[in-house]
């Protein structure tokens, strides 16, 4: 069995988001919340304690009317591979209780809610603010908890959570494949909830290592970039934009720096 399993190809799941297609409609955010049992509270306008695994940022080019321009940027967990793909993403190695982990088999950064004890060091470490703390007990009003999905654990107060690339969908897809006697799953069998929902088709998800997957080619676009590449976090979420100012907004540049 050992031998058999080692034959499985190493995957690197990632996303390519076309910012020129993204309309900022918010479907991905809600698809994520609905899929992953994300709680809500009465006031969600305080964005700094509002749990949105996938958050859409509104970027502006800073120019005055009528040259102003906006761009929406959906930001899931970037599932950083860290320097040299060793899985030392900013958050993983700092967790004192081994509650977050990087899988070399999938490239996914996991968060184990029941292990996390809420020190929030990983939040401090993440430059993308992709990690969220449960400041409040999750409360569903009046029987609304009926819609909760059993595929994703409901998180308790006092712990950190974040986007998992809908890992449970991978688990379920593999379950089905194994049941049918297959070892590998097809690209369309494992897609994240946001990818599935996006009306604009702006999000592509798949194995960045697999030439058969759409993301493999998309990420090579000359308009592709990642957020904060200079920090060497090595994210697995790529963005595409034809607009120079948008691409430049992906990283910090010194004021006197030449492009």
């Amino acid at each position: 069995m050992k031998e058999e399993q080692s034959k499985e190809k190493v995957k690197k799941f990632g996303m390519v988001i076309d910012l020129d297609k993204c309309t900022g409609c918010g479907a991905c955010m809600v698809a994520c919340m609905a899929e992953n049992n994300v709680p809500f509270k009465e006031d969600e306008s305080k964005k700094l304690d509002s749990i949105t695994w996938l958050r859409i940022y509104k970027l502006t080019n800073g120019k005055p009317f009528p040259d102003a321009d906006i761009c929406y940027l959906p930001r899931p967990c970037q599932h950083c591979g860290g320097k040299g793909e060793h899985g030392h993403s900013p958050c993983v190695s700092v967790c004192p209780a081994t509650a977050t982990d990087y899988s070399k088999e999938t490239g996914i950064v996991s968060q184990i809610y029941t292990r996390c004890f809420g020190c929030r060091y990983c939040m401090a470490a993440c430059p993308y603010h992709a990690r969220y703390f449960n400041w409040w007990d999750p409360v569903w009003p009046d029987g609304m908890e009926k819609y909760l999905s059993p595929n994703v654990s409901v998180r308790m107060r006092g712990i950190v959570e974040k986007c998992s690339f809908c890992f449970h969908r991978y688990q379920l897809a593999k379950d089905k494949a194994y049941f049918e006697g297959r070892r590998e799953i097809e690209e369309n069998e494992y897609q994240t909830a946001c990818t599935q929902a996006c009306p604009a088709g702006a999000i592509a998800f798949g194995d960045l290592n697999n030439p058969k997957h759409a993301v493999y080619e998309l990420k090579k676009s000359s308009n592709a970039f990642r957020l904060l590449e200079r920090l060497q976090t090595n994210p697995k979420v790529y963005y595409i934009s034809g607009r120079e100012w948008v691409r430049r907004a992906g990283d910090n540049y010194l004021k006197d720096e030449k492009k």
């Binding site: 190695s93 700092v94 967790c95 004192p96 209780a97 081994t98 509650a99 292990r115 996390c116 004890f117 809420g118 020190c119 929030r120 060091y121 703390f133 449960n134 308790m156 107060r157 006092g158 712990i159 950190v160």
Partner: peptide, 23 residues
């Protein structure tokens, strides 16, 4: 007081991740 789950605080010892400065 600072940790979100005080009753699980001992995980930092039992399930220690030696690479973490906090450990």
């Amino acid at each position: 007081i600072d940790i979100g789950q005080p009753l699980r605080g001992w995980f930092i010892f039992w399930h220690a991740n030696v690479h973490s400065m906090l450990t």
